[in-house]
Nucleic acid binder design. Structure first.
Lengths: 259, 259
DNA sequence: ATGGAGGGTTGACGCAGCGTCAAGGTCAAG
DNA sequence: CTTGACCTTGACGCTGCGTCAACCCTCCAT
């Protein structure tokens, strides 16, 4: 006759686990000896080992009881379910692992490689680190909203970097964000002019679909808000854009107000 | 400004999750509006998305806060840890899956294929189903104790089945276990004779190492107990073996009492 | 103005599978 | 007789939220 400790050791589990199985009725409570100790026979050891085998395989304890009582075909059916579940779980972890290894590269937290390359390009053209970080956070919001569409829009974004206007814009942004210039800095006007010009280009070339963007206002609002939260002077930039007939600098759609 | 529901929807989580992150201090509580509603800015959305990215990757919430604050090298180190953990987890599940698919074959619950083949062989030589089940439970105990050694001992076991004595023994066992014969059935004596002869053979041929087995009494005791629990008449068999100078039928070692 | 739908608020319990005290009683050995 | 290793029950803790409950707020249609 085994004590609970011996039984547990034999099956390679803790005594707490055994008592837990008793509590949930998975393993029947054995007889007690004179002093109230549980005393186990060999069948208990066999049962416990079977239980652990299924539990190690990921079967929830609540199902193990039925599985051990089931006939062959029901059992096989249960096994099938378990196996599917295990496959799904493994797949989930595999994709997690892929994402995690991408995280090792600095910016890629929550960002696909295309976008991190874009950020690296920004650094190459002299964009300041804080500006890149602001840009990165913006992309995080964009990717969260259009995880699929991101791939198709990136080539155009890269191409855009050949435009000296855009390069100048990032330069202005870098200077401003690093400086303590006030709301009245003339570079804000210059930035607004460039933004308006770029918006005009994009709009007339049909690159922007106002209807499409109208249906998805939230992210644009968030992007504007993010800019202002990152640097309050962005508010002034938004105002300047509105004066020029654009509802915001990220939501490049002419407003009715412009009428 | 977003409500908690809008924020949650944007990041693809539930409001409960967001509130949970507040509770544990992972996401700072935002300002409230006049009616006490939480109002979120864009930075909260960015933070929440970052949090979910790490959480989806399997990072415990308790570590995410530090990881997001950490510098690049500390972050990379954390990622490394996470990745190792993911690898281990995947491996664990893979082995579970292997075990589970083996379970589909009937007897293999907690048993390696060598043993299930052995059980199938027993069926072929006419061993009754209940006898096979008893044998199977015995093997479960054996495998639990010597998971490594099982592979090397099985060939000898298979070879043993060529011995007509052993075949007869399983036949006797099958008959007895299926019948309601009493303690005085002469077949018990016959079985004891065979067992004693086999034990003698094994002992003189050096197949058994008494010292080795002495160090590991528990499993032998369990096997004896299992037999008796499966069929009380096994007790009589044990007694008969003891009379013949063997301490039990599974623990094939001569006792001092035999002096 | 009213009522209902669909938000929001805090508080609390529930889940799986045990780990881990706490506060004792028991057993075997020296 | 003591000591240390075991046993007993009971209860809380952990992770990451899900799910009531009971109530308040806002907006829209009537």
């Amino acid at each position: 006759m085994l004590t609970i400790g011996q039984l547990a050791a034999y099956a390679g589990v803790t005594t707490r686990a055994v008592r837990h199985y008793h509590q949930i009725g998975l393993l029947p409570e054995p007889e007690r000896d004179a002093s109230g100790y549980r005393r186990y026979g060999a069948k208990a050891a066999v049962s416990l080992i079977k239980i652990r085998t299924l539990a190690n395989a990921g079967v929830p304890l609540s199902e193990i009881g039925q599985m051990l009582e089931a006939d062959a075909s029901t059992f096989a059916e249960g096994i099938e379910r378990i196996d599917r579940h295990l496959r799904d779980e493994i797949e989930r972890l595999e994709t997690s692992r892929k994402q995690v290894t991408q995280l090792i590269a600095g910016d890629s937290l929550a960002l696909p490689p295309e976008v991190t390359s874009y950020l690296d390009r920004l650094r190459e053209i002299g964009t300041s680190e804080r500006m890149v970080e602001a840009e990165r956070d913006g992309w995080i919001l964009v990717v969260a909203r259009w995880p699929e569409g991101i791939r198709e829009m990136m080539p155009a974004k890269f191409a855009h970097l050949d435009d000296p206007q855009l390069v100048r814009l990032y330069q202005l942004g870098s200077e401003l964000i690093e400086s303590d210039a006030g709301d009245d800095d003339p570079r804000l006007e210059e930035a607004a002019d460039i933004l308006a010009a770029l918006a005009e280009q994009a709009y007339t070339s049909g690159e922007i679909d106002p209807d499409k963007e109208a249906r998805d206002e939230v992210p644009f609002g968030l992007l504007d808000a993010l800019a202002v939260e990152s640097d309050p002077r962005a508010q002034r930039l938004l105002d300047l854009m509105r004066k020029r007939g654009w509802s915001s600098w990220t939501r490049t759609r002419p407003e009715r107000l412009a009428d």
